[in-house]
Design a protein around this nucleic acid. Structure first.
Length: 537
RNA sequence: GGCCCGUUCGUCUAAGGGCUAGGACACCACCCUUUCACGGUGGUGAUACGGGUUCGAAUCCCGUACGGGCUACCA
């Protein structure tokens, strides 16, 4: 149980200097409930996953519930498959919701489009209270208003206290006119009536006190002409109905916080309002991270591959790029938060244990792909071969590399994992264990070839044929003894041997390779390569 | 333009009045390694600027500059 202090909003009237601010301190223990509320309009990017993560960590840390609510109130932006995709991403990351469209729960439905009927009542309540009004302006009229009032100093005029009296709404029309328009089902929206000259403030868990002058905020639409709520109404109504105790979202929402504060106050009272926290943005090289940045700078932005059903455009995800979910979660956690120690590699349970909202930064963080790869490398190194196995098999499949022997594959994984930064690196790093190299870099051998070496490898093959101890140690001993007896430098023999076995200058220790390859395969490769060298190819 | 948020090495960050400003990534050098990695050692590199407050400021306050976000019947 997490003790929550509800005292996070105040309103002040500068004229009367009266702080009608109401500071509540609620020490009652209440089950923590947080939500992630994505709009199913496309791929789930880094910032979205990090928002999920921080919500999840906070909930789990305090024994609370993590809820996913689908914000699909904009029907024009509906993208088939996007909702399913979001849950797939969360599953891959291991961040399973406690309640959602897919997980059930008793404060549903968890899809806002299915809650449509609910919102109207609250919008009506605001009208009845005088805190909202009907507006009949058409999109064209709004456009005209913006054009007409646009000046150099004010490039984007707002539907606010200065202009609302010039528009067609229930504040300017007579009661009879409004009734008539309503009776005729004239398309209309419901707008909040922002009060004038009040200072609204609340305590953000990350930023401390944030305040706004209501005179600078416009009359946001709460209920759209199609009867759907906008985010501003839905977020408040649903957070209330779903008993959300802590509302966390990206910093891009901060400017509209005063609207939400007011709706909370009018509809439910601040004593029920969740505690707010606005996470810093994750920035790309040129500002707010976008999938375009990814395409431009060569790194993934989405959690998983996303194919836009309309354009068919495919955007690569971290999963398919070869990231381990543990690493992805780890690197995201550290982008905007740290424990205050020098620890950087965390498993999810360690994150849950160490996480605290107070240590989330208030400044934006630029995403660094190099560091992201480092996290993945660390996780590959520390993961067991059996953990890595399914991921590696998946990569092999994509590369048409079929390996039946699991034991052998696990041995290979252990041998090569320290040189794999991405899971996809396993293919090139271990292919030669299972397939003869298609290319042999004989040029590197030929440049220093000699009759002495020719003789050496002939006898090496002979001795390797004779031995019954096919171990790395034994193979090394045979080679060294032989080199000594023929007065050759070991160093000049290792590279040719390596190239004969793997095709190039890479891979783990050459005797480990030979040991794993087995006697028969090793000998065949040596014989074959030697023939190529003999022919001078 | 207005409003809001922010500002410590190139990047992620530590240090919430008292140190040569610490670590990690990246980069460079060396060691280890008869390949490539891993690992190890060292190096380059930061408190945006100007005023206060204080015996003492990266840290608190104010201003300036810069960066970012928002400014839809999108979320």
């Amino acid at each position: 149980m997490y003790k929550i202090a509800i005292h996070s909003a105040k309103i002040a009237d500068p004229d009367s200097r009266e702080r009608q601010g109401i500071v509540y301190l609620c020490t009652m223990s209440k089950k923590v409930r947080v939500r992630f509320a994505p709009s199913p309009t496309g791929g789930l990017h880094l910032g979205g996953v990090r928002t999920v993560l921080y919500n999840y960590l906070f909930a789990k840390k305090h024994g609370g519930d993590f809820i996913v609510r689908i914000e699909d109130t904009d029907q024009s932006r509906y993208v088939p498959g996007a909702e399913e995709y979001i849950f797939d991403c969360l599953r891959w990351c291991g961040l399973e919701p406690d309640e959602s469209v897919q997980h059930g729960g008793n404060v549903g439905p968890y899809r806002q489009s299915e809650r449509k009927a609910l919102y109207k009542k609250y919008a009506q309540q605001l009208i009845d209270q005088g805190h909202a009004y009907y507006a009949f302006d058409t999109p064209e009229e709004l456009e005209q208003m913006r054009e007409k009032n646009k000046t150099a100093e004010n490039p984007s005029p707002q539907y606010d206290q200065h202009l609302r009296h010039k528009m067609r709404n229930s504040l300017t029309l007579t009661e009879a006119e409004v009734k008539n328009l309503l009776d005729q089902n004239t398309p209309h929206v419901i707008r909040i009536k922002m009060p004038e000259g009040k200072t609204l403030s609340f305590t953000d868990l990350i930023r401390g006190e944030v305040s706004f002058d209501t005179s600078t905020v416009d009359d946001k639409v709460l209920l759209k002409a199609d009867g759907m709520p906008t985010y501003h109404l839905a977020v408040v109504v649903d957070d209330y109905l779903m008993k959300i105790t802590h509302a966390f979202r990206g910093e891009e929402w901060l400017p509209s916080a005063p609207v939400h504060l007011l709706v909370w106050q009018y509809l439910f009272g601040w004593e029920h309002m969740p505690q707010w926290a606005h996470f810093p943005l994750i920035l790309g090289p040129t500002g707010k991270l976008s999938k375009r940045d990814g395409a431009k700078y060569g790194f993934p932005v989405f959690a998983m591959n996303w194919k836009d059903p309309k354009s068919g455009e495919l955007t690569e995800g971290f999963k398919e790029k070869g990231f381990l979910p543990e690493a992805f979660v780890n690197l995201l956690a550290l982008l905007g938060w740290n424990e205050g120690t020098e620890k950087e590699v965390y498993a999810i349970d360690e994150l849950i244990n160490a996480f605290s909202m107070e240590r989330v930064h208030s400044s934006g963080a630029k995403f660094d792909y190099e560091k992201a790869k480092w996290f993945n490398h660390e996780w590959i190194k520390k993961s067991s071969a059996s953990r890595l196995l399914p991921f590696v098999r998946n990569q092999f499949e994509k590369a048409n590399l079929i390996v039946a022997d699991t034991d052998q594959l696990e041995k290979v994984i252990d041998l090569v994992k320290e040189r794999c930064t991405l899971l996809s690196d396993f293919v090139e790093q271990s292919r030669f264990f299972f397939e003869r190299p298609s290319q042999i870099d004989t040029a590197s051998i030929l440049s220093k070839w000699s009759p002495e070496k020719e003789a050496f490898f002939s006898s090496l093959i002979h001795y390797y044929e004779q031995t019954h101890q096919w171990t790395a140690q034994e193979l090394e001993k045979i080679l060294k003894d032989l080199a000594l007896s023929q007065s050759l430098k070991v160093g000049e023999l290792m590279l040719p041997l390596r190239i004969m076995l793997v095709g190039g200058k890479f891979g783990p220790g050459v005797f480990d390779i030979a040991a794993l390859l087995g006697q028969q395969e090793t000998l065949q490769r040596l014989v074959q390569a030697k023939q190529l060298i003999l022919k001078g190819i």
